[in-house]
Design a protein around this nucleic acid. Structure first.
Lengths: 152, 152
DNA sequence: ATCTTTGCAAACTTTTTGCACCAAT
DNA sequence: ATTGGTGCAAAAAGTTTGCAAAGAT
């Protein structure tokens, strides 16, 4: 069950020298319980619904604290808001620029590239901060999209 | 020389059904002449210096026009402003999260990943819209950075 | 008791939009 | 003469900050 996972994360937060507050606990709970990735304002809404309203500044500062403690990470799926997810749930995001759908790909997707970059450029890639953009199967097959709007 | 390249781009712009204006011409000239990638406000400054001030809204709308015509593309190197470059100058950007330095990697870097994504996920990757984040050789070698600020 | 965290309001950065005027075709 | 582009001002979107009050250790 996820209760122990939540407690582990809380313990890690405390171990990192930061304080455990209701907002931080609620954010962790939401992120553990979430089926998909959530934006800061989605998290604010859910936390507010569960435990009463929390100010946006607090949400951002708490997310920052969780991120600095190594518990979570934010990812940019395209233009607009970032999404947050737990660090131990590493994977790549495939964002369709036509329909906006987000799929997940295994974390090892970039292993080959990572090795090449270290060897040729001395560059240690951290592959999770940005999404992979492109077109999903359906949109690639479709004749031509009507919209000109890109979600990227 | 780059004069003919500029004229080619102007011709392509016209061919795409859009009008050729002093601002658009100036933007193309700056992008052709630029040694590195430029942000919208850097472009505004340079264009303004050369041909007199142009409003920011016009810069953004003109860049959008050039992008929709397929002449240029914008890339996100991290948090903050996007940078613009010519479409025919495709390559990947390696951004060091510690020192902020931007290096370039060959366009084919992701070929293997691209093939894998098509085969396994039916996903056609467009690999240029986001930078590759990580640590450059120097910062990776350094004991530990003093700053906590990430340019990402 | 101390030092973090929160709430509030306000600022900030980057980009976008509505509208009237101007200019490229 | 059309239609698309520009300037202006103002707003939008997303996130950050200063400060005093509240809360975790």
């Amino acid at each position: 069950m996820s209760a122990s996972r939540i407690e582990e994360l809380i313990a890690a937060l405390r171990a990192s020298g930061r304080r455990v507050t209701p907002t931080r606990r609620a954010l962790i709970e939401q992120l553990v319980g979430a089926s998909s990735h959530l934006t800061a304002d989605e998290l604010m809404a859910r936390v507010g619904l569960a435990d009463g309203p929390v100010h946006e500044a607090t949400i951002y500062r708490s997310l920052d604290a969780l991120e600095r403690s190594g518990l979570i990470e934010h990812v940019h799926l395209g233009h607009g808001r970032a999404v947050y997810h737990l660090m131990d749930d590493l994977h790549q995001h495939l964002v369709c620029e036509v329909c906006g759908q987000v799929a997940e790909a295994p974390a090892g997707l970039f292993d080959v590239v990572q090795r090449r970059l270290v060897e040729h450029h001395g560059f240690v890639m951290r592959p999770y901060h940005f999404a992979v953009l492109g077109r999903c199967r359906r949109c690639e097959a479709a004749p031509v999209p009507i919209l000109e709007e890109e979600p990227s």
